[in-house]
Design a protein around this nucleic acid. Structure first.
Length: 559
RNA sequence: GUCCCUGUGGCUCAGCUGGAUAGAGCAACGGACUUCUAAUCCGUAGGUCGGGGGUUCGAAUCCCUCCGGGGACGCCA
């Protein structure tokens, strides 16, 4: 359950009732209710909740906001919310609601009952697919893929908690131009390593990883491929390489804490005729025309800046054509909503992709594209260009090796996807002990330590129903208040597609815990206080653990 | 040139549908370990929210404009 939401809704109802009563008694004149908010004020001196309704009504009611606020506060039926302690009119006309602190006493029982599900919202009955990373299987995973992975997986976790039915998907681009070039590169390297003096393709994949793959091929097949035709050889080596690369991607992402429900091969869209079929369909609908030998999709009809080629003059479909078929396939699989996590370098693709979905008769709003700004990699204070072709970048597997999965995931998701981030490798390595992730994990470990001490001392931990929470002080209540926020925070994270909020949330929660820990003792002479605090520690532990779980970060019992 | 993201204390960043006196962390300075782990805590200092207009009772947030940073504008993906 969501305690914040519960009180917010309750107060909203009280305000609406009070307004209607005021209108019936001719105290306030108005036609329509404004879209007012019940918010949590930044300053706790302004109450637990506050509403701006009076200011928004001033114009149509032709009354001073403070006057309206006063009438509303007098008309509110306090018997409908026993936790309501005090109502004040303040500032320009805010109505501030102060709750009796007892409203928080129900939180521990709720948290302990829900356990690892604490934070979950009501079932949304919506199937949502999150597609992320989807790196080309022609090279190593880079920092951009790493960020996309951390963001996508965290978002998927948050959506799951928020009550959606989530599937994670990786789209394997195992077809098309890039793959042809990949095949040519592999072929050239094979022949070169076998002693042939041939040119390497001009825009081929020059990275060391291609050479490594070819060495594996030679280890397995020696010179036995030399008799093949060029087409046969390319086909053979590219299949070998794709198998190896995809396995590498799966392993690396798995080590990064990411596991997919579906690995979708682009090739199947071509082989099954889905790409041709969707292009034919759009052609019949009049959304495709021919020009200069190529087939163009009229994305300008949907507000895009220019039309886009779907079938090249050489008869080969473009990546965009396959993507149209892919997205149709997604909707046909029954997803109510589809989320793609893309690098900002793909933003030009957004408009036409949404246009294509509209052209296919689907509501484009069912597709959300979360664009994340790119990662710049620094080493020794100098930018390292991220190019798959040069092979000079640091790969995701190397990053995990160097700074660890927990720090890497926390770091990538700590910033808003909108902000470009500089990843300084030297800093990440040198200062790994100062990484905020340790601050949070340490909180978890400290609480576990308290429980170890309690157990050693034979202290029995009671259930929430058996203890008196009114013995707690301000610091405990502040912690509880933060814990009560968790489901709301997840709901906002899901709604706004803002996974970084979870990282900030758990940092704040850990901060409140550390502060409490340094001022108060859990295990102490006052047994009633000890009982209440032990339960508070349990609820804190669960919340931190769940939040870290969403982030894909481990919650160690000892550090 | 057009489009997208961005500009908040020395540094890195938060800031939900506009709300009340703009918040953290790091760095700086000064304190706290006979007490459940000091990977922690407490305090001090530090800001024209890039500049300028506008809308509003109210703007870091919305609109216009200019400036700076990044990205995209391909029959690549």
């Amino acid at each position: 359950m969501n305690p914040i939401q519960k009180f917010r809704d309750g107060l909203r109802n009280l305000v609406v009732s009070a307004l209607e009563k005021s209108r019936a008694e001719d105290l306030i004149v108005f036609d329509t209710l404004p879209e007012f908010v019940i918010e949590v004020p930044r300053d706790e001196g302004h109450g637990d909740f506050a509403s701006n309704v009076a200011m928004l009504m001033a114009r149509q009611a032709r009354m001073a906001p403070r006057k309206i606020a006063e009438i509303i506060s007098e008309q509110i039926d306090r018997t409908q919310m026993l936790e309501l302690d005090k109502i004040e009119v303040a500032g320009a006309g805010f109505i501030n609601f102060f709750l009796n602190q007892a409203w928080l006493y129900s939180v521990p029982g709720m948290v302990l009952e829900m356990g690892d599900r604490y934070g979950c919202g009501p079932k949304q009955n919506q199937k949502v697919q999150v597609e992320f990373v989807s790196a080309n299987p022609t090279g190593n995973l880079h920092m951009g893929n790493a960020r996309g992975g951390a963001i996508g997986d965290t978002l998927a976790n948050a959506l799951t908690y928020a009550g959606y039915d989530v599937e994670r998907e990786f789209y394997i681009n195992d077809s098309g131009n890039q793959i042809d070039i990949f095949a040519q590169s592999l072929e050239a390297r094979y022949l070169q390593l076998m002693g042939a003096k041939i040119e390497f393709p001009e825009n081929g994949y020059a990275g060391q990883d291609v050479v490594d793959t070819v060495k594996n091929i030679i280890r397995d097949y020696k010179d036995s491929l030399l008799g093949m035709s060029s087409a046969e050889l390319q086909d053979f080596v590219v299949n070998y390489a794709l198998k190896e690369k995809i396995q590498y991607i799966k392993n690396t992402l798995s080590n990064f804490g990411i596991n997919y429900d579906v690995w979708f091969n682009e090739k199947t869209l071509h082989e099954s005729g889905q790409v041709n079929a969707v292009i034919e369909y759009l052609k019949d609908k009049g959304y495709i025309y021919e020009e200069e030998g190529a087939m163009w999709f009229k994305s300008t009809l949907f507000g895009d800046e220019k039309d886009e080629v779907v079938i090249r003059a050489n008869g080969m479909p473009t990546y965009f054509a396959a993507d149209i078929a892919y997205h149709l396939n997604k909707f046909e699989r029954g997803f109510d909503r589809v989320i793609n996590v893309w690098g900002a370098d793909h933003h030009g693709h957004v408009g036409r992709m949404k246009g294509a979905i509209q052209a296919l008769g689907y509501d484009a709003n069912r597709l959300d594209i979360l664009l994340m700004q790119l990662v710049r990699l620094y080493r020794g204070g100098v930018i390292v260009r991220m190019s798959k072709r040069t092979g000079t970048t640091v790969s995701l597997d190397e990053l995990v090796e160097e700074v660890g999965k927990d720090a890497a995931r926390f770091f990538f998701v700590m910033r808003s996807p909108d902000s470009q981030m500089d990843f300084d490798l030297d800093l990440a390595k040198e200062k790994s002990q100062e990484n905020p992730v340790y601050y949070v994990q340490y909180a978890h470990a400290r609480i576990q330590s308290i429980f170890r001490q309690a157990k050693a001392a034979g202290v029995e931990i009671k259930s929430p129903g058996e203890v008196d929470f009114s013995i707690m002080g301000a610091e405990e209540l502040e912690l509880l208040r933060k814990i009560a926020d968790f489901p709301e925070e997840i709901a906002i994270t899901a709604r706004m597609m803002a996974p970084h909020r979870i990282a900030h949330y758990v940092l704040e929660l850990a901060g409140l815990f550390h502060s409490f820990y340094n001022h108060q003792r859990v295990l102490n002479e006052n047994k009633a206080l000890q009982d209440a605090r032990l339960i508070l520690m349990e609820t804190t532990l669960i919340t931190i653990k769940n939040a870290l779980g969403i982030l894909g970060v481990s919650a160690p019992d000892q550090m």
